[in-house]
Amino acid sequence: RRAAGASPGRARPERCNSVVLLPVAVDGTTAALLVAYTCGDRQPLGRPETDLLRELIERTQTPLRNALELRRTRQVALALQRSLLPAPPEVPGLDIAVRYRPSTVGAEVGGDWYDCFVLRDGATVLTIGDVAGHDLPAAVTMSQTRNMLRGLALDREEPTSVIMRRLDLSVQTLYPECTATCVLARLERSGPGGLELQYSVAGHPPPLLIGPDGTARFLTAARSPLIGAVPDPRYTSAREPLPPGSTLLVYTDGLVERRHEDLDTGLERLRGRSAEAARRPLDVFCDDLLNGMLPSGGDDDVAMLALRVAPQE
């Protein structure tokens, strides 16, 4: 309590006639300090008032414990996720940029990932995916799924459809309750100066290809069900030439999905904005998409990986 017109913590010592300091402890850790005082002609705080304050503190234990646990869970999940989102490799003739923006809602972080690495045969692998869930278990499962996919892609030179099938069967065996979406792409040299993309899509939003002239279109030729949905999964793969100066974008659904809005609306918005920003430097291109596509206080994670082929000299 404080005298009328006084600011908290600024009462003059000579005007205070009583002060009570009580620690607010949660699971043995002091989370806050409660300070109560009376000033002027008001009755000093006595044992009844102190006992009431102690009771109020006791009643805050469960809400405070839940709030601290929520914060700890989010911090752990976010740290785990960021540790698994690497910087892109340096690949001659390619410019690669990555972005990750966590949800701003509670502990909703954990399911999105991207990856990019170069194989022994010189091919560049791009992956992006999303494990169902927005919590610490989702972050853990994401890390295991992402690492399995990296190992399967490195193990042998196979079409992306075969690798995706092996990933799906592995997930169903080890994590039977898990479902996930994913894009796996392999970028190969095809003749002098030529590049070709081989890709497979498992229930994920389609990759977007923006030509050097700004024409943007989705790659929809290799659609398959999401991981963990079909007992005996079959995947397809498709090939797409990447001309000089073109930009390839893979992303998670947080970039395009909105509540109470059809997904096609979000995809068309992404296609339009990507076409407008196609001639900007790749880092600027990615930042423009994030800033233009995402509402303030987004409630879902967003991961993006963009690749641009060097223009023809």
Results as ranks from 00 to 15, higher is better:
A310C: 08
A180G: 02
I128H: 02
A87E: 14
L195V: 11
E261T: 01
Q144C: 02
T160K: 08
L208H: 04
P281T: 14
N17I: 01
R189V: 13
G298V: 01
L70Y: 11
R1A: 11
Y235D: 10
P89V: 09
V309Y: 02
A229C: 10
L126V: 10
G111L: 05
A139Q: 02
A31H: 04
R186M: 07
L33K: 10
E157L: 15
R72I: 03
P88C: 10
F218E: 14
R42P: 04
L68H: 08
Q198S: 12
S296R: 09
I210A: 11
R71Q: 15
E313F: 10
V35L: 14
A87Q: 14
G254N: 07
P207D: 05
T127L: 15
T73R: 15
E268S: 05
R10E: 09
T29N: 03
M293K: 01
C286R: 07
G191T: 09
L263S: 05
V76W: 07
T127C: 14
G46I: 06
R223H: 01
E177T: 02
R74C: 07
A277G: 04
T265L: 01
T220E: 13
V140Y: 00
G110M: 02
R65T: 12
R2H: 12
L255M: 08
S224P: 00
V125A: 10
R120H: 10
A153C: 14
E58T: 13
A202Y: 07
D283H: 13
D115P: 12
T145G: 12
I210L: 11
G28C: 00
A67D: 12
R308G: 10
P205V: 00
S190I: 11
L197N: 10
S170M: 09
R65D: 06
A123Q: 09
V162R: 15
P207Y: 08
L184S: 04
A123R: 14
P205E: 05
L242E: 11
E257Q: 09
P231T: 11
D41T: 06
P13M: 08
C182T: 02
V26T: 07
L209N: 06
E313Q: 08
D288C: 01
A97Q: 14
V309A: 13
V76F: 09
S7W: 06
D213A: 13
Q43D: 15
P8I: 05
V250L: 15
P206W: 00
A277Q: 12
A202H: 07
G46C: 14
G110D: 03
L255R: 02
A221N: 03
P102N: 03
A6L: 04
T38W: 01
L22N: 07
R259F: 02
L282V: 06
R72T: 09
T220R: 14
S274M: 08
E188F: 09
R12C: 05
